[in-house]
């Protein structure tokens, strides 16, 4: 990788994250939703991995190691925002505010439970995909050189090779 790609990768990270944020926030009004936003974030992170390598990326963006936790938190947020009506005896996914009620505004942002649900989806998908990238970028058999390799890990690479060759 040249200096140029490195520079471009660094430059692209912040705008990519901003686009993702915009898509997430504007999801209810315009094209896009939590899932698209999460995939954009993942692509931005994947670019860093590709250019800088796993070790340097994770040193420079230490937040990444919270990815599995973000995934779990996203799942819990989505569950909570979908299942809370059970507490009031309403059907699942009866979102607040209901039809006809006015949502609460913070500036031009409308606070609604479906948006919270979308944020949950975003966290889950982004966290899950980044965790996957982390694991695929550093295959266990490379990382654990020098240690006795676990039996389960070593056949993974030949198996993948076999599948690909078909």
């Amino acid at each position: 990788m040249s200096v140029l790609t490195e520079a471009i990768a660094r430059l692209l990270l912040a705008p990519a994250l901003m686009v993702a944020g915009a898509i997430l926030v504007k999801g209810y009004v315009d094209v896009g939703d939590g899932f698209s936003a999460a995939v954009i974030v993942t692509l931005a992170v994947a670019l860093q991995y590709l250019v800088l390598g796993a070790r340097r990326t994770e040193e420079e963006i230490p937040l990444l190691r919270f990815a599995p936790r973000a995934a779990i938190a996203g799942l819990l947020i989505a569950l909570a925002s979908g299942f809370f009506p059970l507490l009031f005896g309403d059907p699942l996914f009866s979102h607040e505010p209901g039809p006809g009620k006015r949502p609460i505004h913070v500036g031009r942002l409308e606070l609604m439970t479906p948006v919270l649900f979308d944020v949950g989806v975003f966290l889950l998908v982004a966290g899950a995909l980044i965790a996957l990238i982390h694991h695929l970028a550093e295959p266990p058999e490379l990382e654990e050189e020098g240690h006795p390799a676990p039996a389960a890990a070593s056949p993974a690479a030949p198996a993948a090779r076999e599948e690909a060759s078909r």
Binding site: G27, Y28, D30, F93, P103, P114, F117, D118
Partner: peptide, 18 residues
């Protein structure tokens, strides 16, 4: 009525949330 303008997102998050 679901306070949205983008049908796809509203379907995903609200109508077919489960």
């Amino acid at each position: 009525a679901a306070h949205g303008k983008d049908v796809v997102t509203v379907i995903l998050a609200d109508f077919r949330g489960l």
